[in-house]
């Protein structure tokens, strides 16, 4: 007797629940995939390449002293895709002023004083990123950047507070090796030729850099 009531009760329960159960178990809906395997990622283990080191060479036009070769090195830290900080050191040797050349013997500066050395700390902005195409099968990432900063220049037996600004073009051959072409103006106040004036020393350089 008891089993009968139990059976009856169960069958009623089943018949009322059946459509509901069928709807639930009929076709599983992928709301959450319980089999999703998630791996712990160690982000610090991924190689980050935010630093860039470059060497460069080119021509520096030293105001009143002609144009001479310049060589130098730069280290940059890329903060965002747009902004980077850069420290640079470069050296050159000044030639003679027109006066020295024409007069023959008169020398304004000693050999030591002709050494032109500078360092600067600058901030740069990558603008106009893009790709450049060489032939039909090569595409390289490029960016044009503007940069400005402050530093010091040792020239003519004195050190001068120097402002630099300019623009450059970076072409990446792969992820970590790039070609740079830069134009910079180094401005400082000098009284080397009697009266104090602001001198412009325009530098045109090319170099290679590696990201690490």
């Amino acid at each position: 007797m008891e089993t009968w009531t139990a059976r009856l009760f169960l069958s009623i329960l089943l018949s009322t629940l059946a459509p509901c159960l069928a709807a639930q178990s009929g076709q599983p809906v992928d709301v959450v995939d319980p089999d999703l395997e998630r791996q712990e990622i160690d982000i610090d283990a991924i190689d980050s390449e935010d630093f860039e080191f470059s060497i460069y060479g080119g021509i520096l036009s030293i105001e009143d002293f002609g144009s001479d070769t310049v060589i130098g090195a730069r280290a940059a830290y890329h903060i965002t895709e747009t902004l980077f900080l850069e420290a640079a050191y470069g050296m050159s040797e000044a030639g003679e002023t027109s006066f020295e050349t024409l007069s023959g013997a008169a020398q304004l500066l000693t050999d030591d004083e002709r050494d032109f050395e500078y360092y600067n700390l600058s901030a740069g902005l990558n603008i106009l990123p893009g790709e450049t195409f060489i032939g039909s099968s090569w595409a390289f990432n490029t960016a044009l950047y503007v940069i400005a900063g402050i530093g010091s220049t040792e020239f003519g037996g004195d050190e001068h507070f120097t402002i630099n600004f300019g623009a450059g073009y970076r072409m990446l051959f792969n992820d970590w090796f790039a070609l740079h072409v830069d134009v910079r103006d180094h401005l400082f106040d000098s009284d080397l030729l009697g009266t104090e004036k602001t001198v412009h020393n325009i530098e045109l350089t090319a170099g290679f850099s590696v990201f690490f």
Binding site: S48, E49, E81
Partner: peptide, 11 residues
């Protein structure tokens, strides 16, 4: 596969 990072970008 996460290959490398540069600033806020992952290769």
């Amino acid at each position: 596969v996460l290959l490398k990072r540069r600033t806020t970008w992952f290769k």
